[in-house]
Each structure stands twice: as C-alpha cells, then as structure tokens.
Amino acid sequence: MSEVPAVTRQLLSAPLPQIIERLGIAVADAQRAMDENSVRTAALMATTEIELGGQQYNLMALGFTPTFYSFTEATVEAKLSFSMTEGTEFGVTAGASLGVNAGMVMVAASVSVSYARKFSVSAEGMSSIAARVVSLPPPEILEGVLRRMSEQTPEPA
C-alpha cells in the first residue's frame, strides 16, 4: 500500500488557524506594550524639568510630546513545497549453459529474480512574518491636557 497519500495529508494539515491566531495575539500584545511605553514616556516628560532663563519648565510645557505608534498591517507568509515518488522495479534474468565432454552432456540453468520498492520524500518550507508600524500624533485628549498645561506654565523668556 502506498504511503504517499498519508504523507500528503500530514503536510497539508498545517495549523494555519493557530498561526493566524498567534500572529493576532502577538500584534495585540506588541501594540499594548508600545502604548504603555508612550504613556510612561509622557509621565516622564511631565516630571522632567529643565531650567531656562532662571525658570523651571517640564518637557511637556516646552512642547515635547511622546511618540505613539500603531501597527497598520501584519502579514504571515508560509510556503511549502514537497515532492514524493514511489517506484517498483521487478527484474528476471535467466541463463542456461550446455556442455559436452567425452560423451557426457551437462546442462545448467540459472534464474535470478529481483524486486525493489523505492520511496522518496523531500520537503522544503519557508515562512516569514512582516509588520508595518507607523507613528501617530498623541491622542486628542492628551493634546488638550498638554495645551492646558502649557497655558498654565510661564512662557520661556
């Protein structure tokens, strides 16, 4: 019985839904981490003060804002190529020899039978994951808070 259909079924049953699910979860986790980093940066900018002209200013009051990033797309690509061969070889060779010597006749026969069944399977795979990240302006509410903070802080001289 051929093993080729069984191997084909195994190769074609790749866990594509799980791969897509894991990519989605990874993108969501990475997006959350980037957002948390931007919020921490905003808090640091609000508490980091520098002196200009004898007055103290935090970075936010001077117009610095944290950078926010967002994933715009994520792509997973998988390629699989495989080849399978199955072959059967059957061979029969026969030979006979006849010898006559001093009135005696000698006859010899030889038969050689061979049978071979050969299987060959090769598979190659390649995968890649790509994500595109873009920077975004701060959220509108944060911008409003920053404007109010800058209005309350004296202008640099």
Score class of each variant (00 low, 15 high):
Asn58Phe: 01
Gln55Cys: 04
Ile129Ser: 08
Thr88Leu: 09
Ala78Glu: 06
Phe90Trp: 13
Ser122Ala: 13
Lys79Cys: 02
Ala42Asn: 09
Ala6Lys: 12
Phe82Gln: 08
Asn37Lys: 09
Arg22Lys: 13
Phe82Asp: 10
Ser38His: 00
Ser83Pro: 04
Pro139Asn: 04
Gly144Lys: 12
Ala108Pro: 01
Glu51Ile: 07
Leu16Arg: 10
Val7Lys: 14
Phe90Arg: 11
Leu142Gly: 03
Gly91Leu: 05
Ala102Asn: 11
Thr8Val: 12
Ile20Cys: 12
Ala43His: 09
Asp35Met: 06
Phe119Leu: 10
Val111Gly: 12
Glu51Asp: 05
Pro138Arg: 09
Pro66Ser: 15
Thr67Leu: 11
Ala96Met: 14
Val4Arg: 11
Ser97Ile: 04
Val92Leu: 13
Pro17Ser: 00
Gln152Ala: 15
Thr41Met: 15
Ser2Gln: 07
Ala102Ile: 03
Val133Asp: 01
Glu89Arg: 12
Met126Asp: 14
Gly103Cys: 02
Arg132Leu: 03
Val133Pro: 00
Thr93His: 06
Ser97Cys: 01
Gly54Pro: 01
Tyr69Arg: 15
Pro5Val: 07
Gly53Lys: 07
Leu59Phe: 02
Ser13Ala: 11
Ile141Asp: 14
Ala28Met: 09
Val76Trp: 15
Val145Trp: 03
Ala43Ile: 14
Ala14Asp: 06
Ala157Thr: 11
Asn37Arg: 11
Ser38Gln: 00
Ser150Thr: 06
Lys118Pro: 00
Ile20Ala: 15
